[in-house]
Nucleic acid binder design. Structure first.
Lengths: 220, 220
DNA sequence: CTGGGGTTAATCAAGTTTGACTAATTGACT
DNA sequence: AGTCAATTAGTCAAACTTGATTAACCCCAG
């Protein structure tokens, strides 16, 4: 059921999606877009990780690297990337998987939410319904497995750990149901429904959510 | 507000705590305890990470390594570790920080729950109250910062990302309040309250939650 | 016309995480 | 006596992440 073999962080999805929306993008542009979405707050989208992901995915044929174009706006020459056919497939696979699978890493779902409008409304609804089912199954498996024969008191305070997971699963499912309702009710503009929502910064546009001072407490 | 500089994963807290409970432990013992607590399901407590953490923390003086003792039960010779004074301090700092700080990584809180009984009941209550406050502050900062002047509709579907964080924060705070009530109501046995709950496997005791087949769906 | 500060863009070393692998010993079954 | 599987214990290369640093270029105050 795991769609992608390897560490399932959000970075690949984020970078692939950013490059895809631009058509052609260099690292700094990707970095800026992700910052615009606040991704540096809730995911590991830091410069090093972004450049690493770009190179790695270029090596794997998911991106095509256009060798150094001289910068038009100061700074060192830059490498531009375009998504390949294989990369697009990977993007869609990751996106569908991240919407469906419950792996309790909030960054993965957050990233997927940012790109969900790249799919059909109907498909997103199906995927989210599947997500709810996956959460419910997960919950059932966990509670059955971790309940000792002689009652849950046997676990002592350790039981609070399970309690916490289960609570997270339940509230996660509840939230997903809410999202399903909003989408079913006509919210947002999905693929093939006309003018898409613009989520990238145009060349030269200033970033209202620019980085710098942390503003959201200590949350990473 | 961040108590520990460096990647705030749960592994150091888990390993320090496991060694501490044993008094003296080798890597495999730690690995087994963490498995017993289900930590391999909800954290990065995999063999490689555990052995790495042991070595690293020994290098940093948090653990003292007793060089190779011949194994008494098969397998290659093993290195035993004891926690040092510095290590105990670090453990308590990490533990307090993990209970207090809201960094939305469920594994950190889970690990802390497992060790909370190593502190006084009163202190845990204070730390958890502080956690609730931290969550509320975080929420306020995020909603204020990410609300465009011309109304939240401007964000389009991207707003669902924030909505998701905020929902997680709210339900996290709610759960914490529930835990506070249970603890205040006398649940569990904390430091200095007599017979502590035994959370480690004795030498030779079989592990009822032994690893192997994944049982909890695809959750990592 | 120069040199310090900011912006653009990317690199690097150090540390961490991962999944797969190695290796030693026991015990059980031939 | 031999060997095969399971258990015990740990190592390793490859990949990933991080924070700091580098490097090119622009602007403009002095």
């Amino acid at each position: 059921m795991r769609f992608y073999a390897g560490p399932m962080s959000a970075i690949r999805l984020l970078v692939l999606g950013a490059v895809r929306q631009h058509g052609r993008a260099h690292g700094y542009q990707v970095r800026n877009d992700l910052e615009y979405w606040g991704a540096h707050e809730w995911s590991n989208a830091k410069p090093g990780s972004i450049y690493h992901a770009l190179k790695q995915m270029a090596k794997q044929g998911l991106l095509h690297a256009h060798e150094i174009a001289p910068s038009t706006a100061g700074g060192p020459p830059r490498t531009e990337y375009e998504i390949t056919e294989k990369g697009t497939e990977e993007f869609l696979t990751l996106l569908r998987g991240s919407l469906t699978a419950y792996d309790q890493r909030p960054d993965v779902l957050s990233a997927a939410l940012g790109f969900m409008v790249d799919l059909d409304r109907e498909e997103v609804l199906e995927l989210l319904e599947e997500r709810v089912l996956a959460i419910e199954e997960w919950r059932k498996a966990v509670t059955e497995y971790y309940t000792p024969e002689d009652g849950p008191e046997q676990l002592g305070h350790i039981g609070e750990i399970m309690n916490f997971w289960v609570h997270s699963a339940d509230t996660g499912a509840e939230w997903t149901r809410g999202l399903i309702e909003r989408i079913r009710g006509g919210a947002y503009t999905f693929a093939g429904e006309g003018e898409p929502f613009v989520g990238v910064l145009a060349e030269g546009q200033e970033n209202p959510y620019a980085t710098g001072e942390r503003h959201a407490g200590d949350a990473r």
